[in-house]
């Protein structure tokens, strides 16, 4: 039971934080298919920073985890500038721009990992071995029956993500910036006429998205898998897009969807273990999240209300 809770949460939260990033971008009117590439690039920068910082701080420094988070967020948001430039400044088609970012991210991170490994170790491996960050258990809460598992063996990431998610919710719904951001996604001309800067708002929204995706990416690399390698591109970004679509572009509902994804996955996984299936069969089981995503999309897509102006290229002179 505890394992289900622990695994479920550690799968759900990176998805969630990336999905929030997607929500920021899409609600500002920019289609965001680049989550996959952004999380990968964030993870790459984070992992690389961990590898490099270890030389100075040693392998067991408690600061590594925080350095990784900051580096991952910076990496993701820097890389997202490409998407922002293409969509906001160059008025490129946003779907294509997303694919450009994903393609570039995969190619660049794989290439740079080889190059950097070549420099550091003399061996052109495409992996950064960074290990798993340390965990902790919340004293009292973890004693609660059934749900106590949620508070056992937590990664520091999980707390950080929850705090940031809460802040993101506040920023989107309660502040001036959020009001303007959401206006961009519904009718950018309204903001323009009211004296707001549509391009700037969208640009910032995309960079926030990049930072959040980067955080999600480094969480996966540093907590779930323990390495950075091309295997990080296994579809987390697309799953979180699916999550935000069921979540109807709203943060609380998306949270519920991510938890559902996470726990559904860990429940099936544990079941398979219990049944003692041979390892080949895990491949078959691994299609479940994707099949589930498709099925859910079939049921939910029609009833959703995406932001009205999402994907439209904002042109001041058009009325």
């Amino acid at each position: 039971m505890d394992t289900i809770m622990i695994d479920g949460l550690s799968f759900a939260l990176p998805l969630f934080i990336m999905a929030i990033g997607g929500i920021y971008s899409e609600r500002s009117g920019i289609v965001m298919l680049a989550l996959e590439g952004l999380q990968g690039f964030g993870a790459f920068v984070g992992a690389m920073t961990v590898i490099l910082s270890r030389f100075y701080l040693g392998n067991s420094s408690p600061y590594l985890i925080y350095i990784a988070m900051v580096a991952g967020m910076i990496g993701g948001s820097l890389f997202s500038i490409i998407h922002a430039l293409l969509c906001v400044k160059f008025k490129a088609r946003q779907v294509i721009s997303g694919v450009v970012v994903n393609t570039l991210a995969v190619a660049l991170t794989t290439f740079l990992t080889s190059v950097i490994n070549g420099i550091i170790t003399g061996e052109a491996s495409n992996k950064f071995q960074i290990g798993v960050s340390s965990r902790f258990t919340v004293p009292v809460l973890s004693e609660i029956p059934i749900f106590g598992g949620l508070f056992k063996n937590m990664y520091p990431f999980e707390i950080v993500i929850l705090v940031i998610a809460l802040y993101c919710w506040y920023l989107l719904y309660k502040t001036k910036f959020g009001l303007r951001l959401r206006a961009c996604g519904e009718n950018p001309h309204s903001l323009d006429a009211a004296g707001g800067d549509v391009g700037k708002t969208q640009f910032i929204a995309i960079m926030i998205c990049g930072a959040l995706s980067g955080l999600g990416g480094i969480f996966i690399a540093y907590s779930v898998s323990g390495i950075f390698s091309p295997t990080i591109y296994m579809g987390y970004g697309y799953l979180s897009i699916a999550a935000l679509i069921f979540g109807n572009w709203k943060i609380p509902r998306t949270f519920a969807v991510c938890l559902f994804f996470g726990f559904a996955r860990s429940v099936v996984y544990q079941l398979l273990l219990k049944l003692g299936m041979p390892s080949n069969y895990t491949d078959l089981f691994l299609i479940l999240p994707y099949v589930l995503t498709l099925l859910l999309l079939i049921f939910f897509s029609k009833h959703n209300h995406p932001p009205r102006a999402v994907g439209e290229i904002f042109d001041k002179s058009k009325r």
Partner: peptide, 8 residues
């Protein structure tokens, strides 16, 4: 992998 970078 530089080939993929160039394609990108």
């Amino acid at each position: 992998e530089i080939a993929s970078v160039i394609t990108g």
